[in-house]
Design a protein around this nucleic acid. Structure first.
Lengths: 108, 108
DNA sequence: TCAAACTATGCAGTATGCTACATACTTGTA
DNA sequence: TACAAGTATGTAGCATACTGCATAGTTTGA
């Protein structure tokens, strides 16, 4: 479990941005109940994983709300693996399509 | 040669957005010199082509300035075909990379 | 001919995604 | 124990990419 400074260093994402993502509901750290002197927030490996996903997804044109949709589905235990993959695939297919069109553009 | 209304209908891009793109330097229509009574701007097929490119490129996460870079290179006659393709490929490869990573994510 | 539709220009406003700043408290270490 | 480094919270500001509105002029069709 890491504090925000370390999380930032590990992912390369600025602290301000991490806080912004957290406020946007993309993930949640947790405070340690046993610590009474502060309300420092700790982040586990799941958050690192989510941040890496966010970085990749943003790079291929996902909006934050699309990313939230995928993450919400992905980390929801109730739904099937196939249903999870489908949420991600839907957008990925659109992108594949566009990439193909862009590549076709090269032969103009 | 079409006026902005028809261009908008043909591409599905709102008139305001087309004007915004034009002002951003992504392309330029031309006024007909022989017409003295107005300054209506006409757009040729090259502009349609550029707008389609913009739509695709935006969908895979290109920013407008990245798009401008590609378009500028693409429609510059002085540079070689290979050089043009390279400008486009640079970003396309980055995206391919990210897509691959995202697909790998599915096996988690 | 006159009203609807279209065009140009300019500027204000909005949504998204950060980024910076101020304030205040906590922790680690020399 | 002092002081740098880290943390939380809140709010303002900024860049990008639109979107809408007001104003004014032009064109087209019944």
């Amino acid at each position: 479990m890491k504090l925000i400074h370390q999380l930032s260093k590990e992912t390369g994402i600025p602290i301000g941005t991490i806080r912004f993502y957290e406020k946007s509901g993309l993930f949640r750290g947790k405070t340690k109940e046993e610590v009474k002197t502060n309300n420092y927030v700790y982040y586990g490996d799941e958050v690192v994983e989510k941040l890496r996903f966010i970085q990749m997804a943003k790079a291929v044109g996902f909006t934050l709300s699309e990313i939230k949709e995928v993450i919400d589905a992905w980390y929801k235990k109730q739904i099937s693996k196939n249903a999870k993959i489908e949420v991600l695939d839907r957008k990925l297919l659109q992108i594949d399509e566009k990439i193909k069109e862009l590549k076709a553009f090269k032969n103009k």
